[in-house]
Every structure is written in C-alpha cells, then in structure tokens.
Write a protein that binds this DNA or RNA. Sequence first.
RNA 1: CGGGAUGUAGCCUAGUGGCUAAGGCGCCUGCUUUGGGAGCAGGAGAUCGCCGGUUCGAGUCCGGCCAUCCCGACCA
Length: 598
Amino acid sequence: MVVLRLWRSGASCQGWNSRNYGLQFAGMLYSRLFGKSVRQVPRDARATSYRLLLQGGFVRSLGQGLFTFTPLGMRVVKNIKHVIRQEMEEIGAQEVLAPLVNPREIWEESGRDELIEEAMIRFQDRKGHRLVLAPTHEEAMVELVRQGIRSYRDLPIILYQIQSKFRDEARVRCGLVRTREFIMKDAYSFHSTFTDLNGFFPRMFATYRSIFQRCRVPVIPAQAGVGYMGGDRSYEFLMPCECGDDYLIQCDTCGYAANEEVAVGDCPVHEGETHPIEAVEAPPEDDMRSLNALRQYLEIPRSRMAKAMLYRAADAVVMAVVRGDHEVSEEKLTQVLKKPILGRAGDDILAELQVPGPWLSPIDLPRRDRVHVVVDEVLAAETSLFAGCNRPGAGYVNARFGRDFTADRVADVIRVPEGSGCRHCSDGTLRRMRAMELGNVFRLGTFYTQAMNLHVNDEHGRRVFPHMGSYGIGIGRLLAAVVEANHDERGIVWPPELAPFSVFLMSIGKSLSVRRTADELYRDLQGFTLYDDRYESISHKLKDADLLGIPIRVVVSRESVSEGLVEVARRTGAEPIKVPREDLVATIRTLLEELEDV
RNA sequence: CGGGAUGUAGCCUAGUGGCUAAGGCGCCUGCUUUGGGAGCAGGAGAUCGCCGGUUCGAGUCCGGCCAUCCCGACCA
C-alpha cells in the first residue's frame, strides 16, 4: 500500500532527447531535471529552511516575498496538497476555487475594506471597476454561499480551496516563512446554529492535528487573537522556531498554551504602603525628552511607572495604561473594547487632545471626556506609582489608581511577561518562545453573514444568519516548517509522504555493466525514483543525495553488480545494506513502511 | 514605517583615487577520473545596482534613487 500511495506523484516523462540510452518512461533523470542543486547560496539566505531549499533546487526567489517553486519543490507542494485534500475530504469538505481578484464592493460590504489598510492591494481595471488582490477569501466564500443556499436544510456546508493570496506585508521573513504572495489552504464552514459550529470545531481540530502529524511538524495548538478576521475565538497551530514571528506562551507544568497576544497569567504586584501623591519636577536646566527619562533621573524602577499609550479606534480615542515594564496587547484591548484598534494615535490626535506624546498620563488629562481610559488590572492593583501629568518635565510619585486617576474600564490588557504564574494550574510558570504559525482555526460566528446579509430560513420559518468558521494553512510556510523540523547537517530529511521522490538511484563508475544495471533498476522503480545519471564524481552524487533528502538511496557499483547485489540505504541512520537485485522492490517497500510507521 | 547592513560574471569573494577589474565555484571544449563536492589543458562570461556630482583620472570619494537581507514596529 505504501509504495502504491507514493506512485501518485508520478513525474512526467523525461528523456525525449536524452543522451542516456534513450530512457523514455516516468520517473526523473537528474540530468534532465530543471533546478539543480547549487554549491553556494546567496549570503542573504540565512534561515536554515531557506538555505536548504535554495541549495537543493526546490525554490527560487523572484523578488521580495515572491517565490517560484521549481520541479522538485513543486512535487513536495503537490504531496502536501494531497495530504491536505485527503484530510479535508475526510471530514466532508468540498473543494472549490475562488478567484484571486475580488471586486472591492464585497470588501466594503463586510467592512474590512476600511479595516485592512496597506496590506491589501487595490487597483482598477480598464473600465474603472475597483478590484483588490484578495488577502483572504471570507468575502468571496460568503458571496458564493449566498448565491447557493436558501434553507437550513442546506447546512452545514464546508468548502475549501487551495489558492494564492496576496498580502503586501510590511516585512517578509526567512524565505518561505513569510512571503507576500503565498499558497494557502483555506476552508470555510457554515452552520445553522452556534451549537453546530461549536460541535464541528473539534473535528476540524483533529483534522489539523492529523495533517501536521503526517507532515512531521511538531505543532502546539494555542489560543489566539482574531485580528482583522473578526469573530470571537481562534486557535493557532504554532511550531516553536526562531524563524517565526509569533510568540508562544506555554506553561511548563500544565501545558496551557496561547499566543502572546492573548495569553493570560498572574503577575506579582509590589508590596508597600500607601503615601499621599506628590508632585515632582525635572531640574529646569535639564532638557528631558520623556516621562521615561524623568523616571530614570529619579531612579525609579520601570515597574513602578504608569505608562500610557494612545490608540485610535473606529469612533474613539483610547488610552491604555499599563506598568512601565509591561507591553500593551492591542489584541486584548480590541477584545475589551469590542471594536478594532486601528493603530497608535498620531500627532493630529495628540494636538487635538492637548497632550504631549512622550509625557502622556491618565492624571491631569486635559480632555478626559474625549478619551476612553482602560487601566490594566495589574497597574490598578499597584499602590505607589510614578506617573506623568501631561506636561513636559513634570510628574507625580506615590500615585494610585482610584484615588488619583480613574478609568472607564479596568481589564487585563498586557502581554503576559515570561515567568508569570499560570492561572490554569497551581504552580506552573509561563515560558515565552518564538514560534511559527502554521495553521489557524477561527470561530467567526455571524460576523460576515450578518455584514453581508447571508441568511436562511430555519425550521420555524425564521430568518437566521449562519454561524461561520474559517480554517487556514499556509502551504509554503508549512514546506519551510517541514524543512526546519526535518533536516540534519547534511541536508533535508523529507517525511516519506512529502518526499519529491521515494528513491534516489545512482551508480558508481562508468563500467558499462554497472550503468546498464542502474538503467534497468530505474525501469523497475519508475514513477517514484530520481535517477542521478550524471557523470559526476561519486562524492558529488552522495552529497546531492543527502542534500535532497530523498528517503531511500540505491547505489549500484561494480563490486555489488558482480555479486548480483545492490546497495540500499536510508537517508538517516543505519549503514547501507546489500540485497539481491530481485529483492530490491520488496526491500524498498519494507523500508518505506518502517519510515511511515515511525 | 523606523534602525542596521550589503550591492563587483550564474554563485561566493578580493580590490581602501592611478595601467587592460583579480581569484574560487559553476558553465563550454578535449583528455583523464569515480565510495564523500576529482585532475590537467584550453575557452566563454562584468556597461562594478541606477542617476548625478567632485577629480587630469571613480569599482573606490560625495549626494540622490533603486534593490536585497537582518532587527524592530505592524500583521491571518
């Protein structure tokens, strides 16, 4: 069965003008392969996965965040898609393909045209119709389903596609880890009730686990924010990795895991007595630039300062006040306010509110009525704080929430610091590590169906908005993650299901009998074998075999041919074994089965 | 969008105001060679990222732009 599965990726016929005895059948001759390995890669390629993929000839770069998959890489991509398709079909998802280009109107309908700024490319066609390059496909899918269903009887429905997305990212990262154009598997489910969506969620969760397991990437499911996707709840599948651009917070005891932007933890508060508030001034000759400079001058620790940050929300200005050693989580702030944070307040807003940016404070706020103040719960518990008074060079010590300043809301709005206590178990400590987001699942609720007016009649004839979920996996990034998690000092070690070929075949020496034997073996193994038929030195071929990471290596040499044997080795570990020629296929099958069972 | 770095042949590098821009890898031709990136001989390949300036003279100095990478901000 194992070998049969691997035959699916059968390469197209090569060798029509082959100089190699006119071999003409499926499989691949390395001499004919476009995109060969290179000895040296650009100095720019630092990330391990990127370096190995470039060096092995799997991908090439076309511009910032833009990549071409070359034939070898394409075969791996096809195998990843195959795994994903199998798993998606398994839970009843049906494949569709929405266009990369969307009419801008549907983005206006959902409200995300305003929410997503530079990341979405907008343009016009020759008739002046306004179009966008889709950064994701919720709108297109809602529109599709709106045209296709009328009754709750049509639900639930699960659609998925494997399609390109384009996001004009501010920062691309580590080769395929963060690109601007990328291939994504995105699925969307529509349910007549919240309960049904909720019940479906664990099934998709299990599907994701299975996909990542088959791809041999060690992911950790973690609670996450919703960003501009909307909805109320999401999980991300994170793989700890220095290349990532998320931070995973994980409890060292109970296994609680969450993205840093939503993670919760217990952060100790300073002990101490309460004193009356007292004004402080910087010496007049000292030209201090910020509240933080005054804090340093007064030799007060960062953790005793009230730090205020101003944000823009849709129809309000929001001040978040946190301890000086903490960072604001815009995601938590968004959830507290129940409206998206659009970004930091600019100079125009600061001027309008008559406050100096570097000296912001919740105390003595000139236009208190215009600002929605959110105080972090840790800061609210502190009894003696250093704070500003919205005036350069001046501030207060011994300030205290409730007595000296007020809030419209007290809530947890900080990014939990490493070392905080775990709230989910008695004695765990939270650890923070860089991680790569390989997949996500969103419980979107009726956010889009309401905004875009997708509704059906329920069994009582009432109009209901379907509850929606969306589920993404970035394919290029997954490919990079597979390499990050499956390589050694010599090259890539492909998981058997994803390998571009199952067998790497090569011969040693130019003895005609050796060569003929190798050619014959290639015929026997056709469909899943890459045959290195070049007249390169043996060491060169071995290095390439290791770099390309194909699971099984078959070597034909003069010595073994004279004994009627061929040499078979796994990419990792054990010494090569010699088997009779007629047993080769069976041996390979056994080895592949072992590899898949690991 | 901020901070930093780098642009010299397909790739990696040298060249620190002065002759015809140097070497390695790779590529092409020929011969030899095959158990861990072979050897010899010959050959092709560069408007030194682009524009402008300084200078008798610029790959080299100055300014602007562009591109790429790294770190941060932002981001499913």
